[in-house]
Computed example of a mutant assay.
Amino acid sequence: MPIPIENIYYLLCYAWNKLEEKERVYVSVDDKTELVDLFAKILINGTKILLKRGIDKSYIDYTDEIVGVKGKLQISQTLKSNLLFKQRTVCTFDSFSSNILNNRILLSTLYSLSRTKGLDRELKKELFKLQRMFSGIDLIQINNSLFSQIKLNRNNRFYGFLMNVCQIIYENTLPSEEEGIFKFTDFTRDERKMNQLFEAFIRNFYRIEQNRYTIVKKETIKWSFNSEDQESFQFIPKMETDITLENGTEKIIIDAKYYRETMTINYDKEKIKSNNLYQLFSYLLNQEDETLKTMNAKGVLLYPTIEKEYDLQYKYKSHMIEIRTINLNSNWKLISERLREIIV
């Protein structure tokens, strides 16, 4: 059974650290809602909020051929084009405009989404209406590098949420066999993408929803090896935890693992996946630095499941090692309670 659409929305908003925006961008979800419809609803509702507030504008540099002189005169280009006798010049000048990167990405996403196969007809109509409200803004060929160029501040931070939505739509939209028509791929079927989402969700959930541990982070752990040849260390793989929770006296290392096929621990002959256990065990041993919290650090392997919860507990010296599962098909309140219980 797939993860409910509403829970996918929760996972994303935690992973993006955009819970406040989630409450503002209300999205009604039912069992019939497809993933592409969910993102269309989010983008439509979020764009309507943006338009009510007024879209962002900024100064943009233009270089153009004009009558007279404006801004900075581009002498060489003007002379090469033989424009002076026409009383025209090539100048670089700035203009206060809404045709900025944020708006171009948003409009281009509305455009591609409105031409996506399988999208609800009423949602398509809404997307077409919204596109007409972005006059003076140009379509753009989106690529991933553009999202890193977006500049946010206190006044336009709501764009951050919309750009997260645009990016996930872009990353999961492909051209179809019909020219000008797109198709949306279900990223929940991609184990690699879902593993990244699951990990980011768990980490940000603990950053936001608990105050027992003041530090919540990825942690780089150095191998407890000695070698006379220091250059040999470059061949050793990097150890980095998914989530480390820490305060003055306690420490927990969580390794979050997402598996698509069973959505639970793989109970074959090996029972728990051996590589997962080896990795967690290595983290615990190599992070020890003689302080009480590192010598008593707890390790947790956390898996999603939609069938049955597992709570397995083992001990190695002073380290507790736990195997936990979380049911992503359950009510969100139960998911939240389960995650809090794991770190008690």
Results as ranks from 00 to 15, higher is better:
66 I>A: 02
121 R>P: 00
86 K>V: 05
87 Q>M: 07
90 V>P: 02
182 F>N: 12
68 G>N: 08
157 R>M: 07
112 S>Q: 12
196 Q>A: 11
145 S>N: 15
82 N>H: 13
84 L>G: 06
85 F>K: 15
71 G>L: 00
139 L>E: 08
92 T>F: 04
134 F>E: 13
163 M>P: 07
85 F>W: 06
154 R>V: 06
192 R>G: 11
88 R>F: 00
114 S>F: 07
73 L>C: 09
155 N>C: 09
122 E>I: 05
149 Q>Y: 13
178 E>Q: 15
189 R>M: 11
147 F>N: 09
166 C>E: 02
63 T>P: 02
145 S>P: 04
152 L>E: 02
163 M>V: 08
104 R>C: 04
57 K>T: 05
95 S>Y: 10
123 L>K: 01
188 T>D: 13
123 L>N: 00
140 I>E: 05
185 T>A: 14
80 K>R: 07
86 K>A: 05
158 F>M: 13
116 T>I: 03
71 G>K: 04
182 F>P: 07
174 L>T: 06
120 D>N: 13
59 Y>T: 06
51 L>A: 09
174 L>N: 12
152 L>V: 06
125 K>T: 06
62 Y>W: 02
101 L>H: 10
72 K>L: 11
155 N>S: 15
76 S>I: 08
149 Q>W: 07
58 S>L: 03
139 L>K: 00
195 N>F: 05
142 I>S: 06
160 G>C: 13
56 D>E: 15
61 D>S: 13
57 K>L: 08
139 L>S: 03
175 P>W: 08
79 L>T: 00
136 G>R: 02
151 K>F: 15
177 E>Y: 09
114 S>L: 03
138 D>I: 00
142 I>Q: 05
167 Q>I: 00
186 D>M: 13
194 M>W: 10
110 L>I: 05
81 S>N: 05
